[in-house]
Structure formats: C-alpha cells, structure tokens
Amino acid sequence: MTTQRHEFDPTPFLVEELPWAPRFSLRVRPEHRAALAGALSLELPSKVGQRSTAAGTEVLCLGPDEWTILAQDADALTTASSAAYAQIPHSLVEISDREITLRISGAQALTALTTGCPRDVEAMPVGTGARTLFDTATIVLWRDDRQSFRIDVWRSFLPHVHAILDQVLVELKSGL
C-alpha cells in the first residue's frame, strides 16, 4: 500500500502578468477578410482558433468575423484601418486596457489550466488560441508551447482568476 508518498515540486508552474501592450478587436465580414488583411498588411486566419504572426504583430481568429490583434505598431494599424474603412467597412476597437494577460508556464501549467477550463486544453494544438472559460470568467487562451500558455482576462475578473491559480499553486506544491 502506498499511503504517504509526496512528490514535492518547488515550482509546478509560474504565473506572470505580462506588460501592457496595444490590443485591438477587429471585426469584418468573412467575404471582406482577405481584402482587409491586404489593406492592413496582416494575415487574418479564416478558421476560428488559428493564429498568425508577422513583424511582431500577432493575430488570433476568435470567431468567423472576429480577430484579436496584438499590434506591434498601433498607430500604423489605426491609420491603415481609417484609410480602408470607406472601401471595406469594418470595426477596429482598441481593447488594450480591457484585458490583462497572464503567462502560465512550467511543468504543470497544463494541470493548472485544467482546474478551471472545461474544454480539452491538452488537445489544443500549440500555436492556436480560443476564447473559453476559466472557472466562471471568460478568457482568451493562447497555447504558445506544450507547457506555456497566455490567458487574457478582463481586468476586473483577473483577481479572481489569479487567486484561484494561487490556490492551485499551493495545492500542487503539496505534491498531492
């Protein structure tokens, strides 16, 4: 019988709050996606969950007509958007302050996410993302590596998410 076997792990996972960065919500009809991508010099993936990265700008397709953009050059993006608007109606709204991003990484990062995410995070391919839930908070989940994730959490929901992750950290450190 094994009754008292503890596997101590000093840092099962790491939670870091990432610095502020320009973030936009882009909306456009799917039929105008390619044209707008050209006008904004972005790659806009057409499938929900897919991401693209070019020249430091990251794009994640969250819905059939919705993308989150982490812009390297926010001014250039808004300028290009204004210029394209008359020809290609769309909406580009700054949401840099709406969400705060946490990076969750380490050997048990996946386990940490399974405490709150109902979907199969393990099956999520590296390099994809999705809007989903952590506990009762809506989040945008980015899988950057096998054991490295980012979650974007609405500002006021962040303390709750963080507090749960803190509890999980203590729990995992116990080895049980």
């Binding site: 919500s25 909406s91 709406r98």
Partner: peptide, 12 residues
Amino acid sequence: LDVWLTSTTEQW
C-alpha cells in the same frame, strides 16, 4: 447591417 459591437466596459 454593417455594424459591429465591442464591449468596452473594462477598456474605460
């Protein structure tokens, strides 16, 4: 309709 909605409650 060509219109889009974005929640900005926590942007401001």
